[in-house]
């Protein structure tokens, strides 16, 4: 028996439910030769902004137990350079390209970006990154249900493309934010972005990251992410893409059982570039072994 792995995210149809997460896979060309990119369910690009961004000072990364703190600060070449220099490689892969976008100036820039990308056929969907914890001095849109609703609603009016809203785990009630995004017309949710964290070198009493606080990823945050996917799943009807410390198929399955329609791998790509393909293979084995015909049957199958 060959289980069905195809899933739908908005108007996107993915051949399998395993993608690579924004910021953890560059623009894919960095991984060329290290894995068969064509096998991925989808690729989410590193976040692109309207204008180029220099990013944060170094040190930008620091390892913590089973985790990684990062504060890159959305360094990227800007949308025009992305379209000219990065998209040509991506479109040759014939894998759905989900473009992660963000802005500092909130709504206006998001709308200009969304309008610009609406015309680009090779961009299969937009992921609204309203949850990057490393934009200094900016409160996260995704920490406020009203701001989340307004932004998603405004973008919804400008584009016919599938909209995925990426939410922050740094909130008291994820379901409230998830509902706001759904009500505003988001086609799907990405759960979760990094958890804000901090690490100190006790010898020097200096923070290990130049911006002091940073985003924590990796297995250290997985239980938090699984819990948030489950909390959101019980409230919203739109598909959830689960992420947060997935290293292998077992980890990914937790997210499906909690309510995810698809999963995304981030930090794992840095350690084992082929992790996502190993997860796809592991999911197939699990479904076959448990005689589950369709990955959809696993979604939200938590027993209580």
């Amino acid at each position: 028996m060959k289980p069905n792995l195809t899933v739908n995210i908005g108007r996107l149809r993915l051949k399998n439910p395993v993608m690579v997460a924004s910021g953890a896979f560059g623009y894919a060309q960095e991984f060329k030769g290290l894995l068969d990119l064509k096998k991925l369910g989808a690729i989410v690009t590193k976040t692109v902004t309207l204008k180029p961004r220099k990013g944060n000072p170094s040190p930008r990364t620091c390892e913590t137990p089973s985790g990684l703190l990062n504060s890159i600060g959305l360094e990227n070449p800007g949308v025009e350079a992305f379209l000219k220099e990065k998209l040509p490689f991506l479109k040759k892969l014939a894998v759905p390209i989900i473009m992660s976008i963000a802005s500092e100036a909130r709504t206006e820039e998001f709308l200009i970006l969304a309008r610009r990308l609406d015309k680009i056929r090779e961009v299969a969907a937009l992921e609204l990154n309203i949850s990057c914890p490393n934009m200094q001095g900016h409160k996260l849109i995704s920490q406020d249900p009203k701001a989340t609703y307004d932004l998603v609603k405004a973008v919804r009016k400008t584009t016919g493309k599938t909209i995925i809203t990426k939410l922050s785990p740094n909130v008291t009630d994820i379901a409230k934010i998830a509902l706001a995004a759904e009500k505003a017309g988001s086609d799907a949710l990405s759960l979760v972005n990094t958890l804000t964290g901090m690490s100190i070198d006790v010898k020097t009493k200096r923070p290990r990251i130049a911006t002091v606080t940073a985003g924590l990823s990796g297995p250290a945050i997985r239980p938090v992410a699984v819990r948030m996917v489950w909390e959101a799943y019980t409230k919203v009807k739109i598909p959830i893409i689960g992420m947060g410390g997935i290293m292998n198929a077992q980890d990914a399955l937790e997210f499906f059982i909690a309510g995810a329609t698809a999963v995304s791998l981030g930090t794992a790509n840095f350690i084992e570039p082929r992790s996502s393909l190993q997860v796809i293979a592991g999911i197939k084995d699990y479904l076959a072994e448990h005689k589950i015909r369709d990955i959809g049957q696993l979604k939200g199958s938590l027993k209580r």
């Binding site: 953890a24 560059g26 960095e30 590193k46 930008r60 840095f270």
Partner: peptide, 9 residues
């Protein structure tokens, strides 16, 4: 982190 130019860390 990655060593291959992807993470910009």
């Amino acid at each position: 982190a990655c060593g291959i130019g992807a993470c910009l860390g």
